[in-house]
Amino acid sequence: MERHIVPELKTRLRFQEYGVGIFPLISTKSSLKKAIKKGLITINDRKASTADYIEGGEIITFKRDQAVRTKKLLGLDLEICYEDDYLAIINKPAGIPVSGNKHRTVANALSGNLKPSNQADVLLTPLPVHRLDYPTSGLLLIAKTQAAVVKLGNMFSERTVEKTYHAVIIGKLDDEKGQITSEIDQKQAITNYNVLSTQFSERFTDLSLVQLHPETGRRHQLRIHLSELGNPILGDPLYGKEETLLKGKGLYLHASTLRFLHPILNSELEVKSKLPLKFTRIFQGY
């Protein structure tokens, strides 16, 4: 049996938002819903539901399912680009998922890389608050407290977190700057691009280094938009062609900058990540 006492809250929260991360085995919304459905969680000795609201002072208990095994930490060294008592930003390696059912995920490696928070609403397991595709490298924002989870989640919903990506694409674009708009999964998707450099390639004729600023966050948005232009990202197995794959090199897409107002400290925060070596071997000086 695990026990969590809710600290004083400024505003009440839905339990399906507050409950993520307060116990080590409940690090995602889906795992929280499963535990609630099985009746493993109580709030003040009453079975919890996703409709409950948390106001502060509640005693939340979690009775581990006998079939659930304790999650083992993943021994993976992560590059920490920024860290304080409330949040962290790590440089996600390409070829590893952010989270999921497999053991080898970024989420399972966070506790072994980040310093524990001293805040009253500390998450027992630090929690990624957005996603990067499995083959994409770059900056990933992590919450270390419950307040950070909620506030950062709202910031992503309100699109106040500015993200910049770099990609190597096949061919040339007609314009040095532009905007791509189209529907993805029946929702509007907007991507701004800026061509930084173009190099001749014996294999692909031309390769271009582009800077990308997504205004929306649809699944695979950047990969789909560039493919729609006829300039797929180098190494994209889903939206490119088989001949654009480079053995052992993966996808040439990197999340390079995060810029936002710190949700707790209220200060401007901008973190940048250097381009991977596979980028700079093609485009020297970047």
Rank of each mutant, 00 (worst) to 15 (best):
I224H: 06
L173W: 13
Y53G: 02
M1V: 14
V168Y: 13
G112C: 06
L25Q: 15
H103P: 10
P232G: 01
Q188H: 12
L40H: 14
E215C: 02
D175C: 05
A48C: 10
T164L: 02
S117P: 08
L74M: 02
E270N: 02
L74D: 08
A48W: 15
G240F: 01
Q179V: 11
K247M: 06
S267K: 11
P93I: 08
G240Y: 00
D185S: 11
R14H: 10
P237L: 03
R159G: 03
I264V: 06
T50K: 15
V98T: 01
M1I: 15
S208E: 13
T191K: 10
K249G: 06
R12K: 13
D121L: 08
A147V: 08
I184S: 01
A147I: 07
E270Q: 11
Q221V: 04
L40K: 10
G39A: 14
A148T: 12
D84C: 02
P93K: 14
T181R: 12
L209S: 08
K47M: 12
F260T: 08
D175L: 06
K187M: 06
R64S: 05
S267F: 09
Y18E: 00
P24C: 00
E17L: 10
N154H: 09
S227N: 08
I190A: 01
Q66I: 14
K38P: 08
I36V: 11
N101L: 00
L73T: 14
I22T: 03
E162F: 11
L9I: 15
T198M: 08
L173Q: 09
H213E: 08
K247R: 12
G250V: 12
R14N: 07
K144Y: 15
R218V: 00
G95T: 13
L139K: 13
S49V: 05
R46E: 12
E55R: 13
R218Y: 07
N101G: 04
L114G: 13
Y193H: 05
N231R: 04
